[in-house]
Write a protein that binds this DNA or RNA. Structure first.
Length: 571
RNA sequence: GCGCCCGUAGCUCAACCGGAAGAGCAACGGCCUUCUAAGCCGUCGGUUGCAGGUUCGAGUCCUGCCGGGCGUACCA
């Protein structure tokens, strides 16, 4: 708890005999730094005390000075408060110096969060659209870990269902083993697209695909052999992407892992009358009788007798609950599936699972490509691999064009290129709130100026450079009274709010909160860097500024890690 | 038709669950013999889609419109 805010609240509370907590919750920051460090709007207090806000503000301002509060002035209905500089720096920076990389986090707790993310469909290369769930989920994982939770990252692969009928069907018609061995996943993808294309002219192909799914569910050896082969090819390709992205999972279990649980589930739900037959399909009704709102029922089994993903999702949720007794389970899946998750959660509640309240859909908007909707089936997509490659090419050309700072050894250069190139793509994705659709544009993604991934990393590398050249240990308790430049104050205050941002990101399932914070932090750091020289200043000032640089670098690095990005020491 | 989401500067987006509208990009103009110029400084840019309502106060909450996206029983 910030001691300055606490003191402001306590003093105002005792002055007017009001609860300190209430005052505390009202304190905010003024719109501009020059106005002060904290601000107390007096509207609500004025109403309670039946006085005018302006008059009250000026009275509070008069009584507030002294001690940790250097100055308090009324600005109309607001009281703007300036904190004693040395104490302000001391409580912010000491906290960071003491807590180190735990700053903004929390101690280990005995609670588990399960995060279902990435979950791509087998037999299709990663497109840039798959990156959204992957980057969001991976970041949420790091954020919850930082807050002390045990986190289970689950990759619920789309490795079952009618799409496999489609693929097997396409393979038996046009498959070429040699091509598949050479170009593996891309060849499978071409088969898939060709099938969808052909089936628009000849709808009977779709029946054929459903037939293959049926055979697969009934363990037809030929169908099963092909399925296993396609899964293997796909997993190999996915592991390559995950390695580049630095993403790891505790559990990689696709829908197929639950295929043996669907029959007992259906038997159970039929027996206890949760499920009922309708139009030849087996469904769970979700509308209460007489209720007006029409929620479509959840389909457990189709007329063809095959299961659908909802069936397997029920099994997966129950299985995870049995294993982990999670505090929360998050499904990081696009907003187009909101209804599916609403149905899933309602169905589980109807089955009597009170833990269904711990399930949360974390939706995000769709990814457009240069203003157009992407379509896997129509072949209009951008592959993640291409995006990463072009990003790394861009990084390489920038590094090579800037000779004077290329103090990088060739080994360093080769490791910096993926560090920067990959993180640039991740940041481009996480730097907007998840619910908006993202329009992917090359010109924006490959712009490394301004608030971008490379900009933040660059700022980090600059801080690292200063510390490297300092050559001595970072002082634990420098003379904070030496600090006081506007850009120093702005930086310290920015560092102060990091823990609140981490908590907000976790509460809202929104890594963007941290992404935006880091962008703003980097701007603040660069302004400081431009205004304040560190090395070579008189020793006490140099020490104090080194401590500030150390704290800035530490928070930047931690923040980058929480987004799943790298923090190279040089670039 | 019904449901959910979105609408803020030319573009991409913020605004701490009702409190003082703000960044980046693009454009133009400055700053490298000093810790990394992937940088910094400055200029330009707004009737927050429209109309009402609640409130001392609304980009934010309520109602109705307009525009866009997604979904709407056997795909995932």
């Amino acid at each position: 708890m910030n001691p300055a805010v606490r003191e402001i609240a306590d003093r105002v509370a005792s002055e007017f005999s009001l609860p300190a907590e209430k005052i505390h919750s009202l304190i905010t920051s003024p719109p501009e730094d020059v106005m002060g460090d904290y601000s107390l709007p007096c509207f609500i207090l004025a109403k309670e005390l039946k006085r005018s806000p302006q008059e009250l503000a000026s009275q509070i301002a008069k009584t507030l000075s002294g001690g940790i509060i250097a100055k308090a002035v009324a600005a109309g209905p607001y009281v703007n408060i300036v904190i004693d500089r040395p104490q302000l720096f001391s409580f912010i920076l000491s906290a960071i110096l003491n807590e180190g990389s735990l700053y903004g986090g929390a101690k280990k707790r005995d609670e588990t969060v399960v995060i279902d993310f990435s979950s791509p469909n087998i037999a299709r290369p990663f497109s840039i659209a798959h990156l959204r769930s992957t980057a969001l989920g991976n970041s949420l994982k790091k954020i919850y870990q930082h807050l002390g939770y045990r986190v289970i990252g689950v990759n619920h692969l789309g490795d079952w269902g009618v799409q496999f009928g489609t693929l097997i069907s396409a393979y038996t018609r046009w498959g070429d083993d040699e091509k598949i061995k050479q170009d593996s996943i891309y060849e499978l993808y071409r088969l898939y697209v060709k099938f969808n294309d052909e089936s628009e002219r000849d709808p009977s192909l779709k029946d054929e695909a459903r037939g293959w799914l049926k055979r697969l569910e009934e363990r037809d050896p030929e169908a099963f052999r092909l399925w296993e082969w396609f899964v293997e090819i796909s997993l190999n390709a996915f592991q390559r992407y995950y390695k580049i992205l630095g993403v790891e999972f505790e559990v990689i279990q696709g829908e197929s892992a639950y295929r043996d649980l669907t029959a007992p589930l259906i038997e159970e739900l039929t027996r206890n009358k949760i499920a009922e037959e309708s139009d030849g399909a087996l469904i769970i009704r979700l509308n209460k009788p007489g209720e007006k709102e029409e929620i479509p029922p959840l389909i457990l089994k189709t007329r063809d007798g095959t299961t659908v993903y909802a069936t397997r999702d029920i099994c997966a949720a129950r299985s995870h609950w049995d294993q982990y007794h999670f505090a929360k389970k998050l499904y990081v899946v696009d907003a187009g599936q909101s209804l599916h998750f609403k149905q899933l959660f309602m169905a589980l509640a109807k089955m009597g699972h009170e833990w269904s309240e711990r399930l949360f859909h974390v939706p995000f908007g769709v990814m457009l490509f240069e203003d157009e909707r992407m379509s896997t089936r129509k072949g209009r997509i951008v592959f993640l691999e291409e995006v990463l490659n072009r990003s790394m090419e861009m990084t390489r050309s920038i590094i090579e064009s800037i000779e004077k700072m290329s103090n990088l050894s060739s080994d360093e250069k080769e490791s910096v290129i993926p560090d920067v190139g990959v993180s640039a793509i991740i940041y481009a994705d996480l730097s907007r709130s998840r619910i908006h659709d993202i329009n992917f544009r090359w010109s924006e993604v490959l712009n490394f100026n301004g608030k971008s991934g490379p900009y933040i990393q660059y700022t980090h590398a600059r801080m690292a450079g200063v510390l490297r050249k300092y050559e001595e240990n970072v002082p634990k308790s420098p003379d904070f009274a030496k600090l006081g430049e506007p850009s120093e104050i702005a930086l310290a205050k920015r560092l102060e709010i990091f823990p609140a941002k981490v908590q907000q990101a976790a509460d809202e399932y929104e890594p963007f909160v941290i992404a935006e914070y880091l962008g703003n932090l980097a701007i603040t750091i660069n302004q400081f860097y431009d205004n304040c020289r560190v090395l070579g200043e008189e020793p006490a000032l140099e020490e104090a500024r080194i401590a500030l640089v150390y704290c800035a670098k530490l928070v930047l690095k931690r923040g980058l890690e929480l987004l799943g990005m790298r923090a190279p020491e040089r670039m």
